[in-house]
């Protein structure tokens, strides 16, 4: 080849150094070119491969997709793609893993293009194989990261229960569901009484521990998968339960208060009790009410405010 002289390298060197598998097959499917990359990853040397029929060489291991692509190129001159997404591993090629492990089957992306002879008559097929193992691995990693991010985005970092973002999204869905199925929906706003004096007295670390205990205790009161319990703000929690009567909702709110009192967390600076207590505001929407469902948040918040102004450590129902 004349370029050897001017460029200082041969086409053959390029073919054998390139980080791609290169095969050329003729119209009779005989192998005309087989580069070093192919020898390395298939375990079949150039001497073994050349002039062999590619179908025979791989002993029936070629997939229908690979054969269809080859036929498209040889018979119709149409280039073909085999994506790693849809085929994974059409050829028996392997990549070395960690030492001592057996080589793993390589994920591949394959491109087949027709090559016309200078006279235009004879058609051969150039097959390029690239190793997509890395992108497959990267894709898997991205998916698992994105799952983790999605979980993180809806979780409260301190207490591990849902955060306000999750609640706001679920609230809209729950309202829609209740309207459609004409079922009751109860909203509970829960606030820890005198939490600022508690923090001042016991310190923020103890404050954080207590927030976790309260979150766990509230969470433990949930009975159904559709129930939602989230941290709404600093020392404020919110719960959403469907299908409770107004009376059941009040009982549930009382139970919430009792569950926190049962923790018997000492609170030396609380005017209401010697242990930690909560105030709860609750409102239940029933389908026979003429009122709109949406002021539920405001209603429960108003009720909570009243519970606080009435002396805390109690349940107030928005009437």
């Amino acid at each position: 080849m004349s370029s050897n002289v001017t460029l200082g390298f041969s086409t053959e060197q390029v073919v054998n150094s390139i980080n791609l598998g290169l095969i050329v097959v003729g119209e009779d499917l005989g192998i005309l070119l087989w580069n070093d990359w192919m020898s390395r990853h298939s375990g079949i040397s150039r001497e073994q491969a050349l002039q062999q029929n590619i179908v025979t060489l791989f002993g029936g291991q070629l997939t229908p997709g690979f054969l269809r692509g080859l036929n498209n190129v040889i018979s119709y001159g149409s280039p073909s793609l085999l994506s790693s997404a849809l085929h994974r591993s059409p050829l028996p090629l392997y990549v070395a893993q960690e030492l001592s492990q057996t080589p793993a089957r390589m994920h591949q992306s394959i491109t087949m293009t027709p090559l016309l002879s200078a006279e235009g008559g004879v058609r051969t097929c150039l097959i390029q194989i690239s190793d997509s193992s890395n992108s497959v691995r990267r894709e898997k990693m991205l998916i698992s990261h994105s799952d983790a991010f999605k979980r993180e985005a809806i979780t409260d970092g301190l207490t591990g229960i849902y955060n306000r973002r999750f609640f706001d999204e679920s609230y809209i869905q729950a309202v829609r569901h209740s309207k459609r199925h004409r079922s009751n929906l109860s909203l509970f706003m829960i606030d820890i009484d005198y939490f600022k004096p508690y923090n001042d007295h016991y310190g923020h670390q103890q404050g954080d521990k207590t927030l976790k205990l309260v979150a766990n205790a509230l969470f433990a009161q949930m009975r159904r998968p559709s129930d939602i319990c989230a941290r709404y703000g600093g020392e404020e929690f919110i719960m959403l339960l469907a299908d409770l009567s107004e009376e059941q909702a009040v009982n549930f709110a009382q139970r919430l208060c009792a569950s926190i009192a049962d923790l018997a967390i000492p609170h030396a600076t609380s005017p209401t009790a010697d242990h930690l207590t909560v105030s709860v505001g609750v409102q239940t929407w029933t389908p026979d009410q003429t009122s709109e469902i949406l002021p539920l948040l405001n209603g429960a918040d108003e009720a909570l405010y009243r519970a606080k102004s009435l002396g805390r450590n109690q349940v107030v129902v928005k009437s």
Binding site: L82, A85, S146
Partner: peptide, 14 residues
């Protein structure tokens, strides 16, 4: 659907 970005292009091309 959001996670498909990388494979989507190759698979759609095929």
């Amino acid at each position: 659907i959001d996670d498909l970005a990388e494979f989507e292009q190759e698979a759609m091309s095929e």
